[in-house]
Write a protein that binds this DNA or RNA. Sequence first.
RNA 1: CGGGGCAUAGCGCAGUCUGGUAGCGCAUCUGCUUUGGGAGCAGAGGGUCGCAGGUUCAAAUCCUGCUGCCCCGACCA
Length: 440
Amino acid sequence: MRLSRYFLPVLRETPKEADIVSHRLMLRAGMIRQESAGIYAWLPLGLKVLNRISAIVREEQNRAGAVELLMPTIQSAELWRESGRYDAYGKEMLRIADRHEREMLFGPTNEEMITEIFRASVKSYKDLPLNLYHIQWKFRDEIRPRFGTMRSREFLMKDAYSFDLDKEGARHSYNKMFVAYLRTFARLGLRAIPMQADTGPIGGDLSHEFIILADTGESEVFCHKDFLDFPIPGAETDFDDVAGLQDIVDSWTSLYAATSEKHDEARYAAISEGDKLSARGIEVGHIFYFGTKYSAPMGATVTAPDGHEVPVHMGSYGIGPSRLVAALIEASHDEKGIIWPEPVAPFDVALLNLKVGDAATDEASLKIYHALGLRGREVLYDDTDDRPGAKFATADLIGLPWQVVVGPKGLADGKVEVKRRGSDERELLSVEEAVNKVAG
RNA sequence: CGGGGCAUAGCGCAGUCUGGUAGCGCAUCUGCUUUGGGAGCAGAGGGUCGCAGGUUCAAAUCCUGCUGCCCCGACCA
């Protein structure tokens, strides 16, 4: 992509409404634009990141056996009356009337709808287990939206829903998502730690929040330091291996980890001094088992092997890609701008032609641009006639993992400069060497 | 919802107290020069001063009402 043909409205100055770093940088880097309180338009650069995150989430959901569908954003109030949540949900739910004065709502979550879809078609235990998910916009009318897309009113969420015959089956379904989440966050370049979460009226130990550590995180967390080095389950993990998955979950839950709300001072004190880790964190995922909370009142039943009809055991599993965009920035930036982890970077390479119009730099830049494109790297080619300083500043701000700098001085010696964003590594290489280096 | 604050050009702000017909920096456009860390000079364009009333010869400025947005707290992926 040529920068001159792209839409990248970067801001030189910091908008005054943004006071956390990810919000500031997302606005300055031209990723988002606020349209209302807690409601954002995703500009091209931001959308690319959002889509890359969603793609990784999707791959890992599929790997774990979940099946994608897409439910609407608008739901009918009737459905929510079945579960009793229409009145229980309160003002967080955005309620809408259509032209016939029918009561509708913009979905804050989809338990009711997925239960309705399930019960319409699934009647036998033989069709279980089943896990259905979608990645869809949600709306929760937060009292006070803040922190940009970290806590917005409209947000993108991957929500998966599992259906099992009994609690044992549901536990395995839960474990599948647990492991999928470990893999998902690791692939995004994050270290997420599963922490015991509130299970509500259901009780038990089947609810975890996945928290990433970031200095600017909103909640205080306490855990054993060993979590930082725990191994991530590999791509070859067999998700149908019940005992194998349970072992992974057991080891990942064997040590103390809790947010301040669930913090147990005594258990934390029991950790040896050098192994304590107290930090700030951001919740990026939440999984829980809720049994027959919706299936029973809504009549989502299957016929069991013994011929009886039983309500299915369900769980739900959320990840917020639009929050993750901000969380990734909170976890990876410096004073100059964003430092994207490679798997989610909107482009792989920033190619800076320092003197557009100069025959030598134009030719070398185009050669690199095309060669990297052929090698499957996405390049943002800065072919604008800005001055070098402005180009460096923009490239640092938007944080692409590689920078290739083509200037008249270097080219006089047949060299271009290759830099890694986020480190001081820089090398002077020939055009061919630079292409090979960056294309890996 | 309680408490605090803001609204003037795309962004950041001054002007409001003390009413006199809107300004600065950056950005944008034109020209020339410049080209390795947010260039220089010259010129230009861009505003129903958040909205609606009111007071006044005259309102960004004073009065009344409304709206939007931000921050702190209680709530959330």
